[in-house]
Amino acid sequence: MARVLFCLFLSAISVFPCMAETDEDFVGLLLSEIKANDCVEKLDSSDFSCITIGPAMVEKVMDMMSNNKETDKIKEHIRKILPHVKSLRIFQAQQNIDFYHSNATLLLNKNKKIYKPYNTAGKDSSCIWLRKNKDKVIEIVKLNKTDEDIKVVNFTGDMTDDFVAELLKM
């Protein structure tokens, strides 16, 4: 009886680390989804590219900018914006555009509780989705589809109204 209780207790404890597991950004989810579908669709991983600029590189960029005395209007705006940005990921594909686009939109709709559309108003080719944490926007996803390619721009960070105001001035 003591052993049974001990095993039950261990099982209960082992669940909690799973609950505390952290999340992925949208591009991370998209890549996982594509990998899951890969065996079905037999896609070539060279169809798409994924650029990742993580928190460490963002810090390096900020250091570089602070050491660089040259300024112009754009750089000034970026200098004010970058402290709010933690990462940038860009997913781009020039083949099987419709497939990747449908995957992305399905994923966004599947995670409607997390990603909210921002004023897309029927624009399927280009739309912006936001992920919020209480009163802050922590992720911005811009999905853009043209005849030549599909591009997903995915920022994460601490995006307040100040961030947006500076962003709109660019």
Partner: peptide
């Protein structure tokens, strides 16, 4: 890349 992406989002 960051500058280009920020401009796109803007």
């Amino acid at each position: 890349q960051v500058a280009s992406a920020l401009k796109e989002v803007s």
